[in-house]
Design a protein around this nucleic acid. Structure first.
Lengths: 124, 124
DNA sequence: ACATGCCTGACACATTGTTGGTAAGGTTGT
DNA sequence: ACAACCTTACCAACAATGTGTCAGGCATGT
């Protein structure tokens, strides 16, 4: 038998079988299946599982984070939307020194502030 | 006093004041402070808050996801590490001149040659 | 000065994510 | 045939998120 079963793979990688299934469910590592549907872990999968662990440990990540990173790779539109949002940063454009930035901000307020009617606050 | 206070900003953006502080705590939107430490929300921040809401709704994200995206921008090493992991695709691992790997491949083929398994395979 | 509003913390609660365990049923090797 | 192992699905326990609220202490406007 060249490939390992899930419990064997768990043994050698340090994950639990439960987590191996969970990782697959997150779309992070898909193992081939036998004709009967058994997961088969080959060297590639084992390597990936081990490096995944290092990745998490080394950078303080969680599986969900890697899952999100995967989503970013699969959905360029999402990456783009995030890029756009991050670029609309409230930080000053590098060319404008602090004082000018503040003046700029305040000036902007006078013209286009409050797109919503009265700021009536009903005390909660 | 050109900028809005936190409750006013909450009012116009649809977030709660509590969430505005939470968002700041996550490092997503930092508002300038008055001399006494009051948060001051200018047009830039308000815009950012509104688009943040759209971003979350439109893509089914959570604040933590955006926080993680921020981390990716601040830590190129992290992005690189993830790139590396994702590129280590299970099809062609690094370079394993291992007989085991070939054996695994053959086994995989053998498995794939077998027709539909006897298990109750409901074609979802 | 007083009423109101902001600040930081902290406690609380619902929801969700993570991880383990167990049960019912098919598969495999001896 | 039988023991051992896999699969999916479900329940449970515990941690993390998201969100409200309240308390004690300054700040601000009238």
């Amino acid at each position: 038998m060249a490939a390992l079963t899930i419990h064997e793979a768990a043994q050698t990688t340090g994950w639990s079988a439960r987590m191996l299934r969970y990782i697959e469910q997150l779309g992070l590592i898909e193992s081939p299946r036998s004709a009967a549907g058994y997961r088969l872990y080959g060297p590639a999968q084992l390597q990936r599982l081990r490096t995944l662990k290092e990745l998490l440990d080394g950078h303080g990540l969680e599986l969900g984070d890697v899952g999100f990173a995967l989503r970013l790779r699969k959905e360029p539109a999402l990456t783009e939307a995030l890029d756009e949002w991050f670029e609309a940063t409230p930080r000053k454009p590098v060319e404008i020194p602090d004082a000018d930035w503040l003046a700029f901000e305040q000036d902007k307020h006078k013209s286009l502030l409050t797109p919503v009617p009265t700021t009536t606050r009903s005390t909660a």
